[in-house]
Write a protein that binds this DNA or RNA. Sequence first.
DNA 1: CTCCAATCGCAACTCGTGTAGCTTTAAGCT
DNA 2: AGCTTAAAGCTACACGAGTTGCGATTGGAG
Lengths: 201, 201
Amino acid sequence: MDKRPGGRSARVRDAVRQATLAELAEHGYHGLTVDNVAARSGVHKTTVYRRWKNAEGLIADALEIAREEPWPMPDTGSLAEDLRGIARLVQSGFADPVAGPISSAFVTAAVQGGAAAHSLHGFFVARHEQAAQAVRRAIERGEVPAGTDVADVIRMAVAPIYYRLFITHEPVTERDAERAADAAVAAARAGAIKADASPAG
Amino acid sequence: MDKRPGGRSARVRDAVRQATLAELAEHGYHGLTVDNVAARSGVHKTTVYRRWKNAEGLIADALEIAREEPWPMPDTGSLAEDLRGIARLVQSGFADPVAGPISSAFVTAAVQGGAAAHSLHGFFVARHEQAAQAVRRAIERGEVPAGTDVADVIRMAVAPIYYRLFITHEPVTERDAERAADAAVAAARAGAIKADASPAG
DNA sequence: CTCCAATCGCAACTCGTGTAGCTTTAAGCT
DNA sequence: AGCTTAAAGCTACACGAGTTGCGATTGGAG
């Protein structure tokens, strides 16, 4: 992609990425300006505009990094515990005083649509795929019926957390996260989360 | 609140509200500017700035109207059908070519936080309260156990729709909405959606 | 070592958002 | 009808995001 990936260009990119994350942690997405990132990174304003286009471009670039980072996925032998662990991971990630604002900024930027939305979509595809392994193991163990839509179980488990955080703007406790996970498990066990079937019961 | 609620002030407010909704439907939240609203409404720019402060203020004001509008809540005698109806209502609302962009704009504006977030929170408190009646009826009928957190059942039923729309940016079909509702019903029946209990099963 | 092209730095500029001070209109009251 | 005053209109301007053209730097190839 870059025609001169080594040397100054690489240093500039790293400095800007670093500055972007720092600015996001401090001021959130709303307070993220190209000028501030340029000043903090020591890279000239014009250069940032040329390579990243605007604030959304900076977010999209930072998302590429976040996407690569591995996730400490739980594997406890119980679907309920695995999903609770995942839900807690999501909740605590947003509650964290340093990582929280950055994660929130990603979501906020992506809601507008555009490049950030595309990047975040890719991010979640990867995350869902990783988390779905917990559900596949549960199917093999016979905890939930075969034919269960594994990705949808994950969505059910984490969606209420995002819903409270970004849609209704209600507070989210660790208990709330666990209850969402528990409900997803119960629904999956009842055979209500399948790709094309009618509800069981 | 207004010291001179009748006459010109009222006409100005109506014109601005109308123009705000029209601009939202056409250009979404990102394309909503005070200048455009002022031009379309025939009200002077400075007047809009004085009374609504900025674009977010226009959104917050429009939300007050949306909050008042009644909702055609289903009452079929079956929790599954009621929740499916509610979920379909949400999904189709965002899919609608004219109402969809406006609704999306509300959510988008509120994600940033601030006055719009506060207004949208109030909006959802009212909506949850209305929708929760369907769950209360189900408890009285014995469809779901007593002690079920009625508001949380609603959250479970609609959260995956919002999650797909605004977080992961996946397409949402009517089937997706119904499956979310079905899963919420299954979880509620299993006793997994209670205020403080451990999962049943 | 030398050259060359990609990339960055710089300063001046455009443009749209939002503000300040003042004048004009008209709603509500007597 | 006439008066008072809240609220709307208007002009000019301040401010910051984003752009442009050009000169300076530097990584990489011969």
